[in-house]
């Protein structure tokens, strides 16, 4: 039984990693085409990093992800703190759950129609606003999970000892929930960097609001580009770092 389980787990990991590993290996293939090995080369990395469109797209994605994460983390954490103290409301629960399950394409066209109707100029800022919508929900969910085991008496003690509400928040509440806040922020960041269809519909004109996934989509649509392999390898390495950081913070949560 246990041996079968181990074997299964091994097979699942093979299934998850072989496609990525293949791209990583191909990224060093001089030949470019996936069918033949033309010798080891890092030329695709050079081409990738020298491509101004990819540079600007990566920069745009970073801008969108950082700003939408900051906004969503602030709003989502406050929302979680409020929700745990307010009277339960199933309408509010539905509102908080909806952004996580509404199909991306539906939210994308709803936002596009809305922005069109109010004659709102599209650009990076409209992508950020859209990304905050689903990121609030994810940050809020992560922080709420932490608050379930939060000892509210600590807050009461702090208030009883004469600390103001603000002092209590910065000195007591936030440090205690900080690991969850950071974990939520990292999740939001990754989701935002990865998101394609909502950005595609809410982006403005031109390269100035093209995000990395939009650029990758265009590259894939135009065929097998070896640069994508190099990008896959870089993104994989980058994600590895982020998840490593996230794990550290998660481990910091007492009792989890």
């Amino acid at each position: 039984m246990t041996r079968w389980l181990k074997l299964h787990l091994g097979a699942v990991f093979a299934f998850l990693y072989i496609p990525i590993a293949v791209l990583m290996v191909l990224s060093f293939n001089k030949a470019g085409l996936p069918t033949a090995w033309g010798g080891f080369s890092t030329e695709w990395y050079g081409k990738l990093l020298a491509n101004p469109k990819i540079q600007s797209a990566a920069w745009n994605s970073l801008t969108v992800a950082v700003i939408s994460t900051l906004l969503a983390t602030a709003l989502g954490t406050l929302l979680a703190l409020g929700t745990e103290r307010a009277k339960p409301s199933s309408l509010r629960e539905a509102l908080l759950f909806a952004p996580m399950i509404i199909p991306d394409i539906v939210l994308a066209i709803a936002l596009l129609s809305f922005f069109t109707l109010i004659k709102f100029t599209l650009g990076l800022h409209s992508i950020i606003m859209a990304h905050v919508v689903f990121n609030i929900a994810f940050v809020c969910a992560v922080v709420r999970a932490r608050l379930k085991s939060f000892d509210w008496s600590l807050v009461e003690v702090s208030r009883d000892l004469g600390a103001s509400a603000q002092q209590t928040f910065w000195r007591v509440t936030l440090p205690l929930i900080l690991p969850a806040v950071i974990a939520g922020a990292l999740l939001a960041f990754t989701l935002s960097v990865d998101e394609f269809i909502i950005a595609y519909f809410t982006a403005g004109a031109g390269q100035s609001s093209t995000t990395l996934p939009m650029q990758i989509y265009a590259m894939i649509r135009f065929g097998v580009t070896p640069e994508i392999n190099a990008m896959a390898t870089l993104i994989m390495g980058f994600s590895f770092l982020i998840v490593l950081v996230a794990q550290r913070f998660n481990r910091g949560i007492p009792g989890s």
Binding site: L78, G82, F114
Partner: peptide, 29 residues
């Protein structure tokens, strides 16, 4: 600070964001 009002103050910005940029666009759809 009023203990009953404060949760709503905390929730207001986030909920407003969701209403303005999710509920309203969906109602428009």
């Amino acid at each position: 600070m009023n203990a009953n009002r404060s949760p709503w103050l905390l929730m207001a910005p986030g909920l407003l964001w969701l209403v303005a940029l999710m509920v309203v666009p969906c109602l428009l759809i």
